[in-house]
Design a protein around this nucleic acid. Structure first.
Lengths: 135, 135
DNA sequence: CTTGACCCTGTACCATACTACAGGCACGAG
DNA sequence: CTCGTGCCTGTAGTATGGTACAGGGTCAAG
């Protein structure tokens, strides 16, 4: 059978078995079908869905936001403009986040570069550096 | 007096007044001195400290991580190498995060571009698009 | 000298995102 | 046929990051 039981899905996605139930209960993944004994049977693409969820979480999205992302689709009908608007907002947010992270990265690189064993006895205070880079 | 009371600090940083007490209790900001009546008196640079905390949170750092960031200082002593190592790890993490966000941004831009009224009757699902853009 | 805005403490509560039982049925290996 | 997993349900507990009182003192303006 191509279907996965809960434990198999958990292993395949390196996720806690209870987490799967939690995701199902919140609607983050589709309700699984059940066999005659009540065991959950997940279609194999649930693996992808869960990997997507975990990746998004790593990027700082909440489960609520991830639900929105999952539902994001543009259909060329009268509602297109609305969806486009929310997509554009999301793009702006991402831009801000990317810029900020890039600045922080720069601060860290500067720090790392300053840290050469032979370097003179200057000391580096991260916060001051970061403030400089950010502002 | 240059010192700020709790409410003043809250206003200056656009933060809940109780949040300030919470940050103080967790050691995220220094314990304020008190006047003779027990009122907290915060030195003015606490404003900066709290802004720093909020910015870092926006970037997806936890309060625990922010504490670590605050303590990150490189002093040219024997521990320099160690600190450099952890800084470099953090840089790698940021790189990954920035790349992933950039890809996600690309997917959204593609979506947004597809949404032109005159465009044909194709419809666009974010997840599929993201997979395309990523791979 | 009272009224309202502020501050104090302790404690309780909230949402999010899990995580851990307890009690019970299912199933395959030995 | 039993032993060890694995699955089921419901419910309770955890950590994080706040948020909201209650009950009481402080302070300055009118």
């Amino acid at each position: 059978m191509v279907y996965l039981k809960r434990g198999e899905l958990a292993k395949a996605t390196d996720t806690g078995i209870e987490t799967i139930r939690y995701y199902e209960s919140t609607g983050l993944i589709h309700k699984a079908e059940r066999n005659d004994k009540g065991y959950r049977l997940f279609p194999p693409d649930t693996v992808k869905a869960i990997r997507f969820i975990r990746s998004c979480q790593d990027l700082g999205f909440t489960l609520k936001e991830i639900t929105l992302l999952q539902n994001l689709k543009i259909e060329p009908d009268q509602q297109c403009g609305q969806v486009k608007e929310s997509v554009d907002i999301k793009i702006n947010e991402l831009d801000k986040k990317i810029r900020a992270l890039t600045m922080m990265r720069k601060a860290l690189v500067t720090m790392s570069d300053m840290c050469i064993p032979e370097a003179s006895n200057r000391s580096c205070h991260f916060l001051e550096l970061l403030e400089e880079v950010i502002s």
